[in-house]
Nucleic acid binder design. Structure first.
Length: 492
RNA sequence: GGUGGGGUAGCCAAGUGGUUAGGCAAUGGUUUGCAAAACCAUCAUACGCGAGUUCGAAUCUCGUCCCCACCUCCA
């Protein structure tokens, strides 16, 4: 029996309790990429939000069918291909491959289905035919247009009135009304095209999602997701197409929209996901998105990923301390003997799951859920300062370790072994600063020798050189280690 | 102009009427050969402004001032 959750529904503008159509099952459709370029960090937010959402629902016992499409034929693909003298299909495929590489490194799970427009032409033509047959669409000059005036419900998702939005009539397109939109675009010479009852052409942008959703999930899907910028016109048009071709069946019961990243060409801060992944661990990028509520606009600047990496390091370092703790006694006994700090860790660790579920079940509030984890971390760090924590604290921190595992399963964060995490951070940060690991280690070793010789001046000079390079040296009680400074991250 | 969403301490940010959310930065302390890291303390009786409802409001109501997004391709 899956756990109940609540989610903000753009259709009602309220947080609602999710009611499945079929007991225990969730059908989720999320608008994917138009593959004319690399996935950037803005796309990645949507990818991560819905990936984590699916993970979480599955963790909570739901049987989720997750569909995310590719738009692999489109005006932008065609014009980009023309610019580069490439074949549009080849260009689209190359960016699909690149996307798969990028999101695999980002740690995304595969959707249940990943339909493409070019392999869904039959379903698209079929849906257009149904719309033409029922009087909701009309052919003109080799294209087919959706008749917005034929749909009384048009505008219900975006609360827009047709008259307000379209004051400038298009000329020469064959459209009856400026609000009408293309279902089928008549072929132009040299462009990709398919046969249809209305002549050769290709699908319009909106119809593909309606057709692919129907193909993979049936007439009514449980949750339709996508970026907030797609509400109008894309999702509004999807509703119109699907509901007019389905009779009474609603298209989607819940509409879930993620907020956008504050980035854009005008801000000059558009970063490709693969470039971000070169400089930062995937989990830091995931954490950056999930530490904010998914509906809020999210700032994007040079400090974003360094900050997220700081947070992530704090989590890994705390977990490492907890993992190192030993002991076999009953947790209560140890906690009582070691004092209030031990009691606090035990208490917060044991209470974590309930608080975490409560937060995330309420409109997928990952930020609050992670906030609770940081409370556990603070208590854990504090407890770890106790002399006897290392030898006897194991049972006390066991529930805290369970909390880390829960976050790993639910969000796909904290999934690495500690050493692997530190290695990845070093490799990526050194790469970003243009440093060789062997050079850094040689200098660190030289400094250790100077320290052993009590040549403090030389040791400090070497340390200054390292700091200058962007490396900070940590003299811990059990040895010397080093890390790449995060504050010097300028290139992200 | 239309539609929607916001304004919470130095910055980011959660908050589902009533117990210190959280993160980052800064300053002081513990620690250290000196640092760093970690921990502790402070900045924090914060909620745009003005009224109202309530025993009690960041949270509800009304008014008001700003900001942002979308309305053209966008995640």
């Amino acid at each position: 029996m899956p756990a109940s959750f609540r989610i903000y529904n753009t259709l009602s503008r309220e947080v609602e309790t999710f009611e499945p159509q079929t007991e225990g099952k969730v059908g989720l459709y999320v608008c994917g990429m138009t593959v004319y370029d690399h996935c950037h960090v803005g796309h990645a937010r949507a990818m991560v939000v819905f990936d984590a959402f699916v993970r979480y629902l599955r963790h909570r016992g739901w049987d989720v069918t997750f569909v995310r499409n590719f738009t692999d034929v489109d005006d932008k693909i065609i014009s980009r291909a023309a610019e580069q003298g490439r074949d549009p299909a080849e260009l689209a495929q190359s960016f699909i491959d690149a996307f798969h590489e990028d999101v695999a490194e980002l740690g995304l799970q595969h959707p249940t289905h990943e339909p493409r427009v070019t392999t869904s032409i039959d379903q698209i033509v079929d849906m257009i035919q149904r719309l033409v047959d029922t009087g909701h669409a009309y052919p003109a000059d080799g294209s087919v247009w959706f008749d917005v005036g034929s749909d009384d419900d048009y505008g219900k998702l975006s609360s827009r009135k047709v008259d307000d939005q379209f004051s400038n009539p298009d000329k020469g397109s064959g459209k009856r009304s400026p609000a009408d939109f293309a279902l089928w675009k008549g072929a132009k010479p040299g462009e990709p095209q398919w046969e249809s009852p209305w002549g050769p052409g290709r699908p319009g942008w909106h119809i593909e999602c309606s057709a692919m959703a129907e193909k993979c999930l049936g007439e009514t899907i449980d949750i339709h997701g996508g970026g907030l910028d797609l509400v109008f016109p894309h999702h509004e048009n999807e509703i119109a197409q699907s509901e007019c071709s389905h009779g009474d069946a609603p298209y989607a019961r819940y509409w879930m929209h993620n907020g956008l990243l504050k980035m854009g060409k005008s801000l000059g801060n558009v970063i490709n996901l693969r470039d971000a992944l070169k400089a930062f661990p995937a989990e830091a990028i995931r954490l950056y998105y999930l530490q904010n509520q998914y509906r809020s606009p999210l700032p994007w600047d040079d400090a974003a990923l360094p900050d997220a990496l700081s947070m992530l390091s704090r989590l890994y370092e705390a977990r490492e301390k907890a993992e190192a703790m030993e002991g076999e006694e009953p947790a209560e006994v140890v906690a009582k003997q070691l004092g209030a700090d031990a009691m606090k860790v035990l208490e917060l660790g044991r209470g974590f799951q309930k608080r975490f579920y409560a937060a995330v079940d309420h409109d997928f509030n990952t930020a609050q859920g992670l906030g609770f984890l940081f409370e556990v971390v603070r208590a854990l760090n504090r407890f770890s300062n106790h002399k006897k924590a290392r030898k006897r604290g194991g049972p006390v921190v066991a529930p805290a370790l369970e909390a880390f595992r829960l976050v790993r399963d639910a969000f796909g964060i904290m999934g690495m072994a500690t050493t692997a995490f530190h290695d990845e951070v070093k490799a990526k940060r050194l790469g970003a600063l243009g440093l060789e690991r062997s050079d850094v280690e040689a200098k660190v070793e030289a400094r250790s020798q100077a320290r052993a010789d009590k040549d403090w001046a030389r040791a400090d000079a070497l340390r200054d050189e390292l700091v200058e390079m962007g490396i900070e040296v940590l003299d811990l009680s059990d040895g010397v280690t080093w890390r790449v400074k995060l504050a010097s991250a300028e290139e992200a």
